[in-house]
Computed example of a mutant assay.
Amino acid sequence: MTRRFIAVDWGTTNRRAYVIEDGVVTHTDRDATGILSVPAGGFAAEAAALRERMGGGPMLLAGMVGSNRGWIDAGYVPCPATLETLAAAVARPAPGIAIVPGVKTLEQGRADVMRGEEVQLLGATATGMAPADGLLCQPGTHCKWARMAGGAIDGFATAMTGELFALLRDHALIGAAMTGGVADGTAFRDGVARSAEGDLAAALFGVRPASLLGLRDDADAASYVSGLLIGADCRAQALPGEQVHLLADPTLGALYAAALRTIGAVPVTLDSHDAFVAGIVRLEELIA
């Protein structure tokens, strides 16, 4: 008998759905119906409409849909987290629908949480895309750095790298100079190199006098700031010579790979969508 289900990576601003049959994706759909666009009490109807559009069947949801701002709060499992501990703690808001919990960590008074990324991380290690022991990075608005041990999420840290860039560009004094796009080039690499000095706040303000005094073209300012932030992020988590597996889209993944190489680490780029599918298939097998 064919094993068929609908997997949904349901985030804050968008969602991606997959029809998976016998472990193989046969159809995908993406839209802008993130959790923030669903009215209070509207998740059951929204899930039902998506299920009908995808041809029916059981659904396994991951991501912010299981947060305290989503359909229901699916909670968090502690580190070390595995596919088995996630499967044992799924929430069931409606018949035929399950939601994957997030993961939490508390080390020396420092707390952190993730929701959605855990499926990619564990999918990557479970299928051999990434090693069972090592450092994985998921660049984004809130960049995740996860230490894997024995195939489990042993600990992790979240950096607000992408969000800080957006705040600086849109609301800070230096934002007036950040008129260009971001690309890997001289300005970006200069920012990564400057991040080694450890005074990020001062380095960021330096964008302002560089613009006023004509020391840097404003078209390069955004790339420089991105290099500062990503460089500082990478230096805080990765060691020279260390291999880092990146689960990212090609554009952002290329920037992190360039920064990691600059600090002496060894980046390995993986397909984040393949990792999600691998993880969600294993979870469906465990809870079926």
Rank of each mutant, 00 (worst) to 15 (best):
L247N: 12
G231S: 06
L255I: 01
V244L: 00
A259G: 00
L229K: 02
A257E: 14
L228Y: 05
A259F: 02
H245M: 07
E242L: 13
L239W: 11
H245A: 12
V244C: 04
D249N: 15
S223I: 03
I230T: 05
Y256P: 09
A259Y: 04
C234S: 06
Q243V: 11
L252S: 03
A258P: 09
I230D: 06
A258E: 05
R261Q: 15
E242C: 10
A259N: 03
P240W: 05
P250M: 02
Q243C: 12
V225Y: 01
L255D: 01
S226N: 14
P250I: 04
L239S: 12
V225T: 02
R261N: 14
V244I: 03
L229T: 08
A236F: 07
A238I: 05
L239E: 06
Y256W: 07
T251P: 11
A236G: 11
V225H: 03
T262M: 14
Y256V: 06
T262A: 15
A248Y: 08
A238L: 05
T251E: 08
A254K: 12
G227L: 10
G241N: 05
E242N: 10
G241I: 11
R261K: 15
A254I: 08
A232C: 12
A248E: 10
P240Q: 03
P250L: 00
A258S: 15
R235T: 07
A254Y: 05
A238E: 02
T262E: 14
L246H: 10
G253Y: 01
A259R: 03
A236H: 05
G253T: 11
Q237K: 14
T251C: 06
L246V: 13
A257V: 14
C234R: 04
Y224I: 10
R235Y: 02
Y224S: 06
G231L: 12
L252W: 05
L260P: 09
H245Q: 09
A259P: 09
T262K: 15
S223P: 11
H245C: 14
Y256Q: 01
L255S: 06
A257D: 13
L252E: 04
V244Q: 04
T262F: 02
L228M: 06
Y224M: 15
Y224H: 15
S226H: 07
R261I: 05
L255G: 03
Q237I: 12
T251I: 12
H245L: 08
A258R: 13
Q243D: 08
G227T: 08
Y224L: 15
A236D: 04
Q243H: 13
E242D: 10
R235W: 02
A258H: 11
Y224V: 12
L247E: 05
S226Y: 01
H245T: 13
C234D: 00
D249Q: 13
